[in-house]
Amino acid sequence: MDLKEMFDPEGEAPPATPAATLVIFRNCPEGGPPQLLMVQRSKEMRFAGGAAVFPGGRVDPADYELAEAHGASDDDHREELAARIASIRETLEETGLAVGLHQRPSLEEALAARAHLLEVGTLAPVLEAMNWTLDLDGLIPFARWRPKHKEIRVFDTRFYLANLGTGAVDLLVDATENTHLFWASAAEALRMADTGDIKVIFPTRRNLERLALFDSFDAAVAHVADYPSRMITPYMEMRDGVPWLLIPHDAGYPVHGEVLETAARG
């Protein structure tokens, strides 16, 4: 298989695992651009090993069941609600941060909920035990990425925005999948990637470049109103004999690609 066929968005797409990730904003304690929560994945992980990413993971069968309990009206709505639920569940599991709720849990409540989640593996019993209700409308759809690589694992990942406000919380890393948690502005994360302090894969870099445009959560929400979430499928194009990995020019991203050789794809 040649590179053009591998990255041709018009060709047949391979099966993809549904996944979801949460871009969590908080006010910077020192002022300035908002900070985003990132997790550094263990090097042993098959996908994006060693990379800094936003918290999230695959959509589980129980997430679909909970979506149906929350009134999923058809298959598309079910997929959407299940992805939002998965992003909330994975964030709680990976970071100890409880978001996407109508309640504002205390640190002790969040840690108790995380311990319960790690024990039972699904979110529904945790919500019942904590007397919490989901605020699924509080998550803002930002983007949806579904690469077409046919020789590596493919995820159909929905990105959502959430606002923590002050961010006055403690976090607890899930050491089975991740090694480090940190807050950084989008611009800071890009500088860390450029200096080699962190590794970012192609979708994360493009999303960080887009997120660096915003000086507040409200600015990000306003931007999404102009550029609603859409499917992003990277494609390859030859430029002066050099293959580039690119994304559409009209999806709200300020940078549309890079030389394929430099693009970390997980």
Rank of each mutant, 00 (worst) to 15 (best):
M1A: 02
D2H: 04
D8E: 12
P14R: 09
P15Q: 00
P15N: 00
A20C: 11
I24Q: 04
E30Q: 13
R41D: 07
R46V: 12
R46E: 12
G49K: 06
V59K: 06
P61F: 03
E65H: 07
H70C: 01
G71D: 13
L81N: 09
S87Q: 07
I88E: 06
T91N: 00
L92T: 02
T95I: 13
T95K: 13
L107W: 15
E109P: 05
E109L: 02
A110C: 15
R114V: 01
H116V: 06
V126E: 09
N131M: 10
W132L: 05
L134Y: 03
D137G: 08
F142R: 03
W145A: 01
H149L: 11
E151G: 07
I152D: 13
D156K: 10
D156L: 05
N163E: 13
L171S: 11
L171T: 14
V173P: 01
D174N: 13
A187L: 07
A187H: 06
A189E: 01
M192S: 10
G196W: 10
I198C: 01
V200A: 06
P203Q: 03
E209P: 07
L213R: 14
L213G: 05
L213Q: 15
D215M: 07
D218Y: 04
D218I: 09
V221I: 01
A225P: 08
P228F: 02
T233E: 02
Y235L: 04
L246H: 08
G252A: 04
V255Y: 06
R265E: 14
